[in-house]
């Protein structure tokens, strides 16, 4: 990738990289490295949002980890993240392939459709939650329920039934998040050498066979990388859920990020929130390491 650089430039001009990197490194240190280290410290303390730590122990850790609510929160997080990641990527992949096919066939409207999906992506998370709350409004005049009423179905308890609330939260998340996977898969699909498809076509493979024999294997790395990115993004998502359900009904849609937010900024429990933040951090890291390890093995 970097082979185009003539050595002469390097040798003649022995620039030091550090001055160029200093501003970025300083920002990384102040706003990433030090806070993350401080989260570790706070997790072992008894700090609250309004009181500095007075003592250090493992008490907060064991309190948080033995909290009866935590398994419920983690399960909710797993369901929300797992289903979102699967649906986001399936829809994103489908759209990417449709776009590539449509463009190859010269079909109209491809750019407009891509723009529409991207438009949903840039809607602020809070607005996303509020918009879907209006769509899922359970009153008789609510959008989806009044539509379902026309065909004599429903009303559906979109937000007050625990299972439906989760489904609703995932739908809202998919609406907003699909564009990211679409762009990644669109780029990866267009990078596949078209000759592969021509050879398959000459060999008499149909589109479905070509999909499994060429597209999927060729996109493997893109899928793995995208899985990491989308999982971590979804794990960290909470503003749309906050606006849509507030985590309810009960704790049915209270994912770990939202629980952490509530612990720190509503219960003012800084130490407990730090432990939760560490769990959030560790989950993302573990997942990324897992898939990154697989990626490197594959690439090697």
């Amino acid at each position: 990738m970097r082979s185009s650089k003539p050595a002469s430039v390097q040798i003649r001009r022995r620039d030091r990289a550090l001055p160029w990197l200093a501003p970025a490194l300083l920002m990384l240190a102040v706003f990433y490295a030090v806070p993350v280290l401080d989260v570790f410290r706070l997790a072992f303390s008894d700090a609250t949002l309004v009181r500095a730590p007075t003592a250090y122990s493992l008490e907060t850790f064991s309190d948080v980890l033995t909290n009866a609510v935590l398994p419920e929160i983690l399960l909710t997080t797993l369901i929300f993240t797992g289903l979102s990641v699967v649906v986001l990527q399936l829809v994103g992949l489908m759209i990417a392939l449709l776009l590539v096919r449509g463009e190859r066939r010269g079909l109209h409207g491809m750019a407009a459709f891509r723009t529409l999906v991207l438009a949903a992506w840039v809607v602020p998370g809070i607005a996303n939650g509020l918009i879907w709350q209006m769509l899922f409004d359970e009153a008789p005049y609510g959008t989806l329920n009044s539509l379902l009423g026309f065909v004599g179905v429903g009303p559906v308890a979109w937000l007050s039934d625990p299972v439906m609330a989760m489904v609703s939260a995932i739908i809202a998340n998919v609406w907003q998040g699909t564009a990211f996977s679409m762009v990644v898969f669109y780029a990866a699909r267009r990078a596949i050498n078209p000759t592969l498809y021509e050879v398959a076509s000459v060999d008499g493979a149909n589109a479905w066979e070509a999909f499994w024999a060429i597209t999927v294997p060729q996109l493997r790395l893109a899928i793995a990388a995208n899985t990491i990115l989308v999982s971590v993004q979804t794990l960290n998502t909470f503003d749309s859920i906050l606006a849509l359900t507030g985590g309810g009904p009960g704790r049915a849609t209270e994912v770990l990020a939202l629980f952490t937010f509530n612990t720190v900024f509503y219960n003012l429990d800084l130490a407990g929130g730090s432990v939760l933040a560490l769990i959030l951090f560790a989950l993302g890291l573990a997942f990324a390491t897992l898939i990154f390890g697989w990626l490197r093995r594959e690439a090697a």
Partner: peptide, 19 residues
Amino acid sequence: AILAVQMISPLVILVPLYR
């Protein structure tokens, strides 16, 4: 590393930063 820090939730950073 610069790519990896993007995976850190702003929430994790804001908890200590706020104080």
